[in-house]
């Protein structure tokens, strides 16, 4: 039987362990043993077919055969599979985690995608053709030639009110969303307002109830009539869904308890001074006299809570301008 070249190369390498592989050999090995985008072409095709259906039925959860990857499920494998099925060699990729380009999840996923595709990567939102993100929509408005891929931990917003996936699928089919309205009403009775901090449920095109991932409420208005295609992937739950550009996305709200974002007037980023971005709170440790961090601030500076832009790339851009 004729063996493929890549298999021959591997057998040769394994049977001659004494020969030290040179760096050029290792490069050659990568050339022949990796598929572009790591996952095989049949798997990509399956993800692609499901993505097309997700775009055709905005907000509908489309099941897909979530493949195993060298990343644990729950760490962005849904978004990763979408990105790997999307990319072509001339793409420029940005990966963020909670708005941050440098967090562990973002760095690892970016490295993995770059290693298996040789794509150009960037931290500049405006340079990217594909942005993969965990729980944030970038601050800078995305354009028509960009795609936002979101990693989703919990795909079905009805999970709060209906633990059975079979029953919640029926509820989506019948557009029976009464229980979620009751849930929201109860939260108003309980706490005086709708106490959903993130993962705010929205109606897409007046038909499907959709989860917005644990993105802050601040990001929800960006989904409505956006210029950009939003693709959502839940690897652990094996679901894909999408919001096409220029689609109507409305957060659930009562007339007397309208939807609100969490931004408060007067808050500003400590680094760039922005008052019009989503801010996260960080504790700045007290410093002792010699400048090292300290639990107490005897004769040094007191520790305090500060606000910083969640979108680090945008914050750095603003700082450069200032």
């Amino acid at each position: 039987m004729k063996q493929p070249d890549s298999l021959k190369a591997l057998i040769t390498q394994l049977t001659a362990p004494s020969e030290e592989a040179t760096s050029s050999d290792r490069e050659q090995e990568e050339d022949t043993l990796y598929n572009f985008g790591f996952i095989d072409e049949d798997s990509k095709r399956e993800v692609r077919r499901k993505l097309l259906k997700a775009v055709a039925i905005p907000g509908h959860l489309v099941p897909f055969a979530s493949r195993d990857l060298p990343v644990a499920k729950g760490w962005g494998t849904g978004g990763l599979q979408i990105t790997l099925a999307l990319v072509k060699p001339d793409d420029t990729l940005k990966v963020i985690d909670q708005g941050d380009d440098d967090s562990v999840n973002a760095v690892n996923l970016r490295r993995f995608i770059q290693k298996t595709t040789n794509l150009q990567v960037t931290t500049d939102t405006l340079e990217a053709t594909i942005v993969q993100t965990r729980h944030r929509v970038p601050e800078e408005p995305l354009g028509e030639d960009q795609i936002l891929v979101l990693q989703v931990p919990m795909a079905d917003p009805l999970r709060w009110v209906e633990p059975s996936i079979e029953r919640s699928t029926e509820m989506h089919a019948e557009a029976d969303y009464a229980p979620i309205w009751v849930y929201m009403y109860e939260s108003v009775v309980r706490s005086g307002d709708v106490d959903i901090s993130s993962q705010y449920p929205v109606m897409v095109e007046e038909r499907y109830l959709m989860d917005t991932t644990p993105a802050p409420r601040y990001d929800v208005p960006a989904l409505h009539m956006s210029k950009t295609l939003y693709l959502y992937g839940a690897g652990r739950e094996k679901r894909i869904y999408a919001i096409p550009p220029y689609s109507r996305v409305a957060p659930l709200e009562f007339e007397d308890y309208p939807f609100k974002t969490e931004q408060k007037p007067g808050q500003a980023c400590e680094k760039c001074g922005s008052t019009a971005t989503y801010l996260t709170q960080h504790y700045i440790e007290a410093k002792s006299v010699d400048g090292t961090a300290s639990h107490s601030a005897t004769n040094g500076t007191e520790g305090y809570w500060a606000f910083f832009c969640s979108d680090t790339s945008y914050c750095n851009k603003r700082k450069k301008v200032i």
């Binding site: 572009f36 999307l86 072509k88 040789n118 295609l229």
Partner: peptide, 28 residues
């Protein structure tokens, strides 16, 4: 922009990826 190819540039892999992006954009 310089593109570094993992597989031969002429393979069906790249044709499929590029075609899919057009099909996705057409449907979106």
């Amino acid at each position: 922009m310089q593109i570094v190819w993992l597989q031969s540039p002429q393979t069906k892999i790249y044709y499929n990826a590029s075609t899919f992006r057009h099909l996705l954009d057409s449907l979106a």
